[in-house]
Design a protein around this nucleic acid. Structure first.
Lengths: 237, 237
DNA sequence: TTTACACTACTACCATACAAGTATGGCAAG
DNA sequence: CTTGCCATACTTGTATGGTAGTAGTGTAAA
């Protein structure tokens, strides 16, 4: 019983080029797992579905391939990329290395107000309460972006976010399970930043960006979704 | 007297799509400053120059815009992006954070052979001796890539390299001046990794990825090349 | 002299047609 | 039944025509 695929659309700003709109729609649906890893899709299919020509779809495909979300096989077809657990782990490595420095720096800054981040936490709890985990992913990302903004390094966040779209797909898998815990950790992080407890942040960050939950949840999903097949609770090639 | 522009071409692998070739050629020439920041260019111009149609050129343009090397102004034209010093500094921040962890990990590994990296250092010295600084940039990048490979994190390098193409353009400016010093520091880094001197590596890395030289060299170039104009030895908006 | 406006020459954007490579199914020969 | 081959229906890659928006110029009116 192949569950029917329901794709989410986005509003389309008129002056913005269509190829960007197509890109954003496809990226959203791939990350939110509305399009399963391994799903075949062709330029013409998406062009028909979105009622545009092949050109902007093709341009979006090229960008998605650049992001590692799509595999383009010339003269054969295109496939939503399988989730590469090794790559996701490397993305997590980058996140850890960079975010440690970000949080360290955040502790040194005098924050006139925590209004933004408090509002964000309220939004997160609203999402968690409603079970709107797709929204929670957005709120989660926004929380971390605010931390980068505090350090005047918002563009660093934008840049490294591109590195871990694969990691995002794994977080979509885990959020329904660990969503509440994640939100609590966010509160902890904020508190430690307020109290300037630099030393305790590192261990908390490791716990926050945990890999163990992912290893467990992966088994709930078909193994065809992954490049490296999970074996005996450990990842193997 | 506008110095005549001489672009460097690349061999063209037949099975590989043309748009990738176009992308690589343009990226090379932008990073090596053969195409100056602010240079106007259009799809038709590059299509004629490279003897291809507009389609693959356009696809390459979109990727270059994604990399921050090109600004596409719809219905107006495209411009080689100005060098954003603030963004370059943020890229350096990421490099520092990640590479510190990489080198720390490299110290813990048992290396059966340093052959690759020794060969690379020989290549660097050859480049430095000949004054082939465009080659030296490649060798420099390769040196760092090898360090990542030692930690089985080569893809981390590939990913973060995309973040600092702007930083690369600045390094092209500085290499003729600091090339020899850079090579020496590479030897130092290798030695510290061999000796597992984790603590001393951090300070060396900060010295290696220095920003002060860049601040000085920037003044040798026209201010129109930069987004943030250098004022009184400090960067201003 | 200054201002308003049409005209021209560009641009990126999008749609479409064609080319070339690949997988598949059916059919015929062994 | 198995094997080889060809026709066909896909796929992505490339070229080209047309559209809409922008900038700049020259001209005519105020």
């Amino acid at each position: 019983m192949a569950s029917k695929e329901v794709l989410q659309l986005l509003p389309r700003d008129r002056p913005k080029p269509i190829h960007r709109w197509v890109y954003e729609v496809l990226r959203l649906n791939i990350i939110q797992l509305h399009m399963k890893p391994g799903r075949l899709l062709s330029e013409t299919e998406m062009a028909d579905f979105l009622s545009v020509s092949r050109t902007p779809v093709r341009e979006a495909f090229i960008r998605l391939a650049e992001d590692g979300l799509l595999d383009i096989l010339p003269q054969k077809g295109s496939v939503v990329s399988l989730i590469d657990l090794d790559q996701a782990q490397e993305a997590r490595f980058v996140r850890l290395a960079v975010e440690r420095e970000i949080l360290k720096e955040a502790c040194t800054r005098n924050l006139s107000t925590f209004k933004d981040i408090e509002e964000n936490l309220a939004w997160q709890e609203e999402c968690g309460g409603k079970g709107a985990y797709d929204q929670l992913l957005l709120a989660d990302n926004e929380f971390h972006r605010i931390l980068y903004r505090i350090c005047h390094k918002e563009r660093v966040w934008d840049a490294i976010k591109k590195l871990d779209y694969n990691y995002d797909r794994l977080r979509v898998m885990t959020l329904p399970i660990v969503g509440q815990r994640i939100i609590g950790e966010h509160r902890e992080i904020l508190q430690l930043v307020k109290d300037r407890e630099v030393d305790r942040i590192e261990t908390l960050l490791h716990r926050h960006l945990t890999w163990e939950i992912i290893e467990q949840v992966v088994f709930e999903y078909p193994s065809e979704y992954f490049k490296a097949i999970p074996v005996n609770g450990r990842m193997a090639q």
